[in-house]
Amino acid sequence: MKRSISGRLFDAANITVLALVGILTLFPLYYVVVVSFTDPAEYIRKQGYVLFPQSWTFDSYNYLLSTSAFKNATLISAFLAIVGTALSLVVTSAFSYGLSRKRLQGRRFMMLLILITILFGPGLIPPYLLVRDLGLINSVWSLILPVLTSGWYVILMKSFFDSIPVELEESAVIDGSTDIGVFFRIVLPLSLPALAAFGLFYAVGYWNTFFNAVLYINDYTKWPLQLVLRNMLIDSSTQAGGTAAAEMMAEQNIPTETLKMAAVVIATFPILCVYPFLQKHFAKGVMLGSVKG
């Protein structure tokens, strides 16, 4: 089919605008990477305005990767991201699918129940006591189970399942499948884009596990990567002031900017690699169309 002039104009404008957006988002990331390879002295001399370092150095990375905890922490984080995401996806999608079936009794009540958990939180201490009473302190499961699913994701994912027609199940049920069979054999394969998106959300969430680990894990050999990295860079910028704080700081080593940036790169690079693999599932027109037709 021939493309109209206005269509071409639109394409050109669209490409340009997106390129601009890309550059705007890329530049600060470029900066972070460059600083991570810069010599701290050069960073200081240029007062942070480093666009291209005079000499590249891997010192920051060597330091961060040298600790014995690093390897372990990476494994823990990978475990969380893989096992946690898998479990979360199964539980969330099953729950959302169930709630998306209009014949389910009590579904509106359950939706409300979930909604309330999004809005009302119990603070810090009750969840801690619960985790303790479940015997999960010091267990990696304390970093998965309490965040296994979330109201946000259940409600959002449900909206994806809402569009799956009832007829689809009915035909399968006639063939002798149960709801569970329908869910795993028909519904999930049809929902790859949603699974990819929510899988990414969960994976990122698990990979970034930090605060729960501070509270629930005493044994540092079970700390996830984010915690281990942040321990090496005690961050003063959000700490409250006061004399005592200033004096505690005096004994610390304020990390150089270059080290901080290297930590950012190490902490985010692995999870950034996940997205391109998921991307193919965002391709237009999954099977749903063909099934319906």
């Binding site: 729950f95 119990p122 709801d179």
Partner: peptide, 24 residues
């Protein structure tokens, strides 16, 4: 079977979200 599918999720919300609600 549909209830079986939602059971784990429901259990999660009751246990991890509603049990600690006393904190409010």
């Amino acid at each position: 079977y549909l209830y079986l599918l939602i059971a784990p999720g429901l259990l999660f919300f009751l246990l991890f979200k509603y049990v600690p609600m006393w904190g409010i």
